[in-house]
Design a binder for these strands. Structure first.
Lengths: 310, 310
DNA sequence: CTGAAAGCGCTTACAG
DNA sequence: CTGAAAGCGCTTACAG
């Protein structure tokens, strides 16, 4: 120790330790968004809380890698013991291959099913169907849908059959499919992000139309999008829930953003992160993988009611 | 290549490459908050955007390490080529020592001056003083201050001389010192985080008092805190800016959070991150360090006016 | 231009 | 119990 001090020893070097031990103590968190954007979504923050919680006292760092700037090769060249995919598209398979090749366990949160990947899933399709059935049960027949981004390009606008077949965002597609099990012909408009502004933008396309063509209810694929819908309804003088019902998804706290209590599907976001972290630790300890399926609950608030008779 | 395929070669192993090359391609981002909380502050998100931008095409991953769960030793055992300290307290010196020992360049954003650390600074004290002078110039004499957390414990409540001397959050202290250059006796209340709710909580302590004791202006150390102040003023029926002036800090977009245009000190948050990333790349290329000092601009909005005559 | 050797800085299993 | 050796998997400088 004394000698170390005198020689001004710079080590120990964690890289050499990692090489020898075969462990780096780093878990990759892979997102398709830009760095800042990934953390602008409150769902991802809740997820991070859960991951931090699930990792507990394990001295593990999270290496955040935005896929946008990284190719599969870059991914493979980052040191990590395991990887967590944060809401990635159906086309990440190529990037995942690089990790699989390196025998790095991959945990995917709400991703399309992939071989050799540990899935932490949410009942997106089923939950969305239940939300739609709630509207259907109230008597709604003409429903609009505001979707999350369809692909990494985050293009806005009406969801055509063509755009749908080119879409890659798995969660978005699952939620849309669930809603359309109940309302097969519902017009859908995609937003460029899960934000209030984007929700408002999409809502204008659905609501700022002649009264006869206006839907009596809107299903938004996130609570932030739903708040945007509520805001546009207010702008246009459309009473909620009298003239318009609105359903969200997520169940986040909306402190001060709206005076309504949003009807929404409450998902266990923190739990999702916790389970992902547990799955990682489980895989690193060499035990067999097990997939996890989490459930969302419909919470009926004050934004849904029977439609006005037309 | 063919042989590699046949043998099912798992490499190349990034850890071995890092050891040989002496570079891991990883930059540590060190925060004193919990994982999720660090990214709940819009200032940190802007910072991340800037860092991502400043890193540009360099294939570098960000290793996020919450100091709360990491000791100095843990910090030293994480592989990284350089480290960026995100708004850390005056008492991180011990942790920084471990990095310095390893010859890891350390860039500190708005931290207390430390030897061997590359400083990216903001004119917190001077900017706060200018905000206070704006109020003073309008005729305000009795001013309250809502501060950011004073230390890692995030204790709420009135800022006593005792608490002040034990405080460790450098940015908070600088902003407070600047305001008190103009209003030496201003009562200050600390918030537990930079959020609207926390701002409201602190504001109640300052404003929910007999009218004669109420300050005619409140200086909030962040825009989110300022929105909390505005919200409480509305609750208590205090007219802004007629009966109460409010100054914020940061200059973030407050979409829909308030109908006022907040008077605030607009800081170059994205630029701060960009400069930090540049400083890292600069240090990694072996060039001499240079400190950076960024400036904030007072933007006068609709929340400040001359006080009502008492 | 090709191919074998040295070495990055640790940790751990083993010999003394 | 102490101490020297082997080896993690690369990259690069050097010999052929």
């Amino acid at each position: 120790m004394q000698a170390a001090g005198e020689l001004d020893y710079a080590g120990p070097d964690p890289t050499a330790r990692s090489l020898r031990r075969g462990r780096s103590g780093v878990i990759g968190v892979i997102t398709e968004d830009r760095l800042g954007d990934a953390f602008r979504d409150p769902m991802n923050l809740a997820l991070l809380d859960g991951i931090g919680d699930g990792l507990g006292d394990e001295r593990i760092g999270l290496l955040v890698i935005p896929l946008a700037t990284a190719s599969g090769t870059d991914l493979a060249s980052a040191p990590m013991d395991a990887a967590i995919l944060l809401g990635c598209s159906t086309d990440v398979e190529a990037s995942v291959d690089a990790l699989r090749q390196r025998r790095v366990p991959v945990v995917a949160i709400e991703a399309a099913p992939m071989a050799g990947v540990i899935a932490i899933d949410l009942d997106n399709r089923d939950a969305s169907r239940r939300g739609a059935e709630h509207l259907s049960g109230l008597g709604h027949r003409r429903v609009g849908i505001v979707t999350l981004p369809l692909d990494a390009a985050h293009t806005r606008g009406q969801v055509t059959a063509e755009r749908l077949s080119a879409a890659t965002a798995y969660g978005t597609l699952e939620r849309l499919a669930g809603a359309r099990q109940v309302f097969p012909d519902a017009v859908a408009v995609s937003a460029a992000a899960s934000t209030v502004d984007e929700g408002a933008r999409a809502a204008r396309a659905l609501l700022d139309v002649p009264r006869g063509e206006r839907p009596s209810a809107v299903i938004a694929q996130s609570d932030l999008l739903a708040v945007g819908v509520l805001r546009v309804a207010e702008e246009l003088g459309i009473d909620v829930p009298g003239e318009l019902s609105v359903v969200g998804f997520d169940g986040i706290r909306l402190e001060g953003a709206t005076t309504h209590l949003l009807t929404t599907l409450v998902q266990p976001a923190v739990e999702k992160g916790r389970r992902a972290a547990e799955a990682v630790l489980h895989a690193l300890s060499g035990r067999p993988d097990r997939a996890v399926e989490l459930h969302s609950e419909l919470r009926v608030g004050t934004t849904t009611a029977a439609p006005a008779r037309s």
